[in-house]
Simulated scan of single mutants.
Amino acid sequence: MVIVSKLISIGIIAVSMFAGFISYYITSDLSKEQRKKHMEEMISQLINFIIFIWLGKVILNFSIFIKDPLAILAYPSNSQSFYLAVLFSGLLLVYKSKRQQLYVLEFIESFLHVFLVASFTYEFIQLVWNDNTYAFGYLVLLTVLLVLFFLTRGRIAVITIIIMILTGWTAGVLLLTFIQPFVTVFGYIMAPWFVGLFFISSILLIIFKHRKRDRNGRN
């Protein structure tokens, strides 16, 4: 029964991500070649993220891993594993950006599209199918952010859209943590300290890359 429940949970995440990618491919204003390139990069980063979650499980349960490595396969990943995966993914993005293998701002904009649609789909399924009432507040937040994203896309600067969505998401999640017991993103509980740290780190990276690109452009 536990295995079936876990498989269903994974299936819901897979369906949600698929919806996000389909939405991006159909509605993106980029050329077909650019859309394909960004989707390949996002899928690559998603695979890396899954690997990083497993790596996080090993790091956080190293003593168990030494005694019984196979036990890690059955050990469920928790929010701490998710946090570490976000950290490792961020470091990888910074590295690829420094190597000029990735244009951060364009990637983040594409990622936000997929993330918002996938998250909306996931929370909608949780609310309607699993009757998870705690999903309602986050679903409302995602609806507002999605409307804002599609209304402003192509009309204002990319960096402005990114900062606006990140600020709205951070403020919304932090507000929800005060009015309900917990807030989850794809089933992982979001701690206020992590949300705040993620926001500050993301904004600093975005501003740094934007200023660096402006200097290079002027040069």
Rank of each mutant, 00 (worst) to 15 (best):
T27V: 11
R155D: 02
L30C: 06
I206D: 03
A19H: 02
S28Q: 07
I51V: 13
V117E: 05
E40S: 09
E123N: 15
M190S: 11
F194A: 10
G196R: 12
F111Q: 10
R153W: 01
G90P: 06
K36R: 14
I13M: 04
G217V: 00
Y103R: 12
Y138N: 15
L148R: 11
R155W: 02
M164K: 12
K37E: 13
F62T: 04
R153S: 15
R211K: 14
W54P: 00
H210E: 14
T167C: 04
H38T: 01
A118G: 08
V86W: 13
I189Y: 08
K209C: 00
I206P: 04
L70V: 00
I22K: 13
I159T: 13
S202E: 03
L176F: 04
N130A: 10
V173N: 08
I72K: 07
L174W: 08
I12A: 02
F186Y: 07
K209L: 02
V86N: 11
I53K: 04
R99F: 01
S201I: 04
I59L: 13
F111I: 03
M190W: 01
G154D: 05
H38R: 14
V58S: 08
M17I: 11
L142Q: 09
K96V: 01
L139W: 08
Q34V: 08
N78T: 14
I162P: 11
L93C: 10
S63L: 03
P69E: 01
N219Q: 11
I207W: 05
S16F: 02
S97G: 15
G172L: 01
S97P: 03
T121D: 05
V86L: 13
S81Q: 09
G196Y: 10
F194I: 00
I50G: 08
A191E: 14
V114N: 09
S16P: 01
V158L: 07
L92A: 15
G90K: 11
I72V: 02
I26A: 08
T167G: 15
I59H: 07
W129M: 09
G11W: 00
N219Y: 12
S89V: 04
V158R: 14
I50H: 03
L205S: 08
R99N: 07
I159P: 00
A14L: 04
L93F: 08
F208S: 09
G56N: 09
M39C: 05
L102N: 11
I163Y: 05
S16W: 02
R99W: 03
I26W: 12
L84I: 14
N219K: 12
F107P: 02
L197M: 11
Q34G: 07
I125G: 02
F21E: 10
I163G: 01
V86E: 07
F88L: 15
M1G: 15
F150C: 01
Y24F: 15
W169L: 13
I206M: 05
V185M: 09
N61D: 05
I72D: 04
